[in-house]
Computed example of a mutant assay.
Amino acid sequence: MPLDPGTPAEAPTRTAELKVRGLTKSFGRAAPVFAGISFEVPHGASVALVGANGTGKSTLLRCCLGLIPADSGEVELLGQQTGALGQGARRRLRARTGMVAQSHNLVPRLSVLSNVQHGLLGSGAGPRYWSHALAPRRAREAAMAALEEVGMADLALRRADGLSGGQSQRVAIARALVHAPRFLIADEPTASLDPAAGEEVMALFFRLVRSEGVTVVFTSHNISHALGYGDRVLGLAGGRLAIDADAAALSERDLGALYG
Results as ranks from 00 to 15, higher is better:
L3Y: 11
Q169H: 11
P42G: 03
G260F: 12
A248I: 08
L77Q: 11
T59I: 09
Q81R: 14
A237R: 13
A172Y: 04
L65M: 14
G44E: 06
A186Q: 10
L241Q: 07
G119C: 12
L204T: 08
G83K: 01
T82Y: 11
A197C: 04
G73Q: 04
V50T: 03
G228R: 10
G98Y: 10
V214K: 01
R240N: 07
P108L: 11
G124E: 13
S123W: 15
A139E: 07
L234Y: 05
F218L: 11
D194W: 04
D154M: 14
Q169Y: 09
L204V: 08
H104K: 01
G230I: 10
A257N: 02
T97R: 02
Q102Y: 06
R96S: 14
T190V: 13
A249F: 10
A30Q: 15
A197L: 08
V171N: 07
L193H: 08
N222G: 04
I68Q: 03
P69V: 08
L250D: 02
A226D: 13
E212D: 05
P127E: 14
L193G: 11
R232F: 13
G119F: 12
A160F: 07
M152E: 02
T55K: 03
A180S: 15
A89Q: 01
R159E: 12
L23M: 09
H225D: 14
A52W: 01
A101G: 02
A142H: 01
L110V: 06
R140Q: 10
L78Y: 08
Q81A: 13
L93E: 01
T59K: 09
R240C: 11
A245M: 07
